[in-house]
């Protein structure tokens, strides 16, 4: 039997203009326009929203959880850490 499921789209939500778009989940949809509409219903109906992005899940290039070497930090890198000043966590303006 062929798989009749629609493909999935990752949804990125922005609360107000200037904020970063944050990943909030995914929707099934047959095409980009429907993906945006359905994302609106799932993620922007109750949350305040100024913008949504949808990206076809299969278009996202991702690292492999099974690959132990990609993020490996095997030597001491503490000299790289900024310790002499506070770096407040600040969002984009």
């Amino acid at each position: 039997m062929t798989d009749t499921q629609w493909s999935t789209w990752e949804v990125f939500h922005q609360t107000k203009r200037g904020d970063p778009h944050e990943h909030v989940g995914s929707v099934h949809a047959p095409d980009p326009q429907m993906a945006l509409q359905l994302a609106r219903d799932q993620f922007a109906r109750r949350l305040k929203c100024s913008s949504l992005w949808v990206v076809r899940t299969s278009d996202i290039v991702m690292t492999d959880y099974q690959d132990p070497t990609f993020f490996a930090q095997t030597t001491d890198k503490s000299y790289r850490d900024p310790k002499a000043f506070d770096a407040p966590e600040k969002r984009h303006p």
Binding site: Q37, D41, Q42, R45
Partner: peptide, 11 residues
């Protein structure tokens, strides 16, 4: 028929 339409139609 699908979850997303369920929510859309309920909306």
């Amino acid at each position: 028929p699908i979850l997303e339409e369920d929510i859309a139609f309920s909306n």
